[in-house]
Simulated scan of single mutants.
Amino acid sequence: METANSVTRHNEVCPLDVTINIIDGKWKSIILCRLMSKELRYSELLHSLSGCTRRMLSLQLADLIRDHIVYKTIDATCAPIKTTYHLTKLGTSLIPLIKAMDTWGEMYLNTI
């Protein structure tokens, strides 16, 4: 919840800024879009993000996990160990917002 505690503007907490801060990041929006439809393994996420480095993906996932938007599960019964990433309940609640922002962005691009 570091994001929720650290976002203040004009000496007050702005819920819009909290939301923007959570999804702001070079790859976060794309990661969230990938996870909206299914859980993915780290390597699947990495391969789906052309140009994203392993380090950057790890940093972005760590932020999303810290903010309780994504969680990871580790299955040590497999060889190699299977690590998957999923949206949390809070993360899933972002789906309508992300879709609305995508629709607005498409409209904006078509307008300008």
Rank of each mutant, 00 (worst) to 15 (best):
Y42D: 00
H10C: 13
T103H: 11
I23G: 00
K26E: 06
L49M: 08
L109M: 15
L45G: 00
S43N: 12
I22Q: 02
V7T: 11
R9Q: 13
A4K: 03
Y108M: 09
T103P: 03
D75S: 10
K89E: 14
I65H: 06
E106L: 15
Y108I: 11
Y108A: 10
L57T: 06
C14F: 02
L97D: 00
K38R: 15
E2D: 11
W104R: 08
L35W: 06
G91C: 09
M56C: 04
S93R: 05
D63Q: 13
M101W: 00
T92M: 06
V18Q: 04
R66N: 15
L35E: 06
C33V: 05
N5W: 10
T111P: 01
Y71H: 14
R55A: 09
I23E: 00
T19G: 04
A79R: 07
I98M: 06
L90V: 14
I112R: 12
T103L: 10
L61G: 09
M107L: 12
L87W: 13
L46Q: 08
S6Y: 08
I81H: 12
V13M: 10
A79C: 07
I20Q: 02
H86E: 06
I20V: 12
S43G: 01
E12G: 03
L46D: 03
M36R: 14
W104N: 08
S48D: 12
I65V: 14
I69L: 05
I65N: 08
T8L: 14
D67E: 07
P15Y: 01
H86T: 04
P80V: 08
T53Q: 04
R34I: 10
M56A: 09
I95Y: 01
E39P: 08
